[in-house]
Nucleic acid binder design. Structure first.
Lengths: 194, 194
DNA sequence: TATAGCATGTAATTAGTTACATGATTAA
DNA sequence: TTAATCATGTAACTAATTACATGCTATA
């Protein structure tokens, strides 16, 4: 029974209290989505496979006429999750981002278009940072009161990193704006941290 | 003819002077690999598809008995590349990282194992930062002298970001080490920036 | 003379996304 | 009563990795 990160995501979410496939997906959307997105079309087959392997149990638990299954992690599933968390296996970065790829090739377009490209990347990082801080972090802080600390840690690391990238690109923009005709500006830029 | 990021990677590398499939892959390995890895099994079919669409031309150019084809980007291909670089389309982050996913679920293991996990992530970021600065950036600086600036910019952004993450995690480690039994330490940690 | 690097491709598999398909319950 | 949310699943497709398969050329 070979387990993928997507499988551990499901196990981990069950362990944190999500009990249906739908709930797992919802929980992932407000927490792990930024570094491990998933979809219902992955969650349901994954749950079935894990049940098959005895890592989770399923119990039908309909709400009125609406079908519904509650899943729970088994001791065997818990063991697998812990082994994964403890394993020394280095997981190399496999970052894939079209935005950065575009930036890499930006020399092909005139300075004005380059500036636009940089600005768009900066805005994206800025929005991502704000989103993590305003939407993701509060939910994580909620469960911190229950003693679950790492979702918050990860949210803070994410927000701070996006802010760092945003600031980095902004400095480059400022540097660049001196050299490029000002007619190309799109107006006032708003600051982060409202 | 719908083009994927992998197609633009090929077009962009051809434009920067790589002429064979093999050379494109080699160039990607010392530059774009960190944010858009690729493989020969993608490059060759992609070149064929691009030739089919008239975005590149192919010319057989064997070295002795060894088969070899030189490719070149056509005006139509160049146009497509520029349109991609100029397009306003926001490319959302699709970050996927097993290491961060593990960190997210770290509450499941005892503090000692948590510290190990954080340490491993910090080391990974540290190594990635050093690698970008020592192996990737020098190659990028080479072509900067020819007026190609963005590969260097991207390398610096990458190196600085990995350093930022490494420092961030190190601060957390230090904070944590006070609370955890010191018997679990793995000895002296080496500093970045040798 | 042997090994590293150049060079090109295909096949099989795995992982992931999007679209399809259905229907109940709850709150405005 | 109607829209949002809960809830479950399958099918088709796309993207990407790994393994397979071959063979030449230059250099140590």
């Amino acid at each position: 029974v070979k387990l993928t990160p997507a499988a551990y995501l499901v196990l981990g979410m069950l362990r944190l209290g999500a009990s249906t496939g739908y709930a797992i997906k919802k929980a992932a959307d407000v927490s792990t989505r930024h570094f491990w997105p998933t979809s219902l079309a992955q969650v349901y087959p994954q749950l079935a496979a894990l049940e098959d392997g005895g890592l989770v149990t399923r119990r039908d638990n309909p709400r009125g006429r609406r079908a519904r299954s509650d899943y729970a992690i088994t001791p065997k599933g818990e063991e697998a999750l812990l082994a994964w968390l403890r394993s020394a296996r280095q997981t190399p970065f496999k970052f894939r981002d079209e935005g950065v790829l575009r930036l890499f090739f930006a020399d092909a377009v005139p300075a004005e278009d380059q500036l636009t490209l940089v600005r768009r990347l900066r805005e994206r990082a800025q929005v991502a940072g704000m989103y993590m801080r305003d939407e993701i972090l509060p939910a994580a802080e909620e469960i911190e009161r229950a003693g679950v600390n790492y979702p918050g840690l990860v949210a803070r690391l994410g927000a701070d990193t996006y802010d760092f990238i945003s600031d980095w690109l902004e400095r480059y923009e400022d540097e660049m704006e001196g050299k490029v005709s000002h007619s190309s500006g799109t107006g006032a830029r708003t600051r982060r941290h409202a």
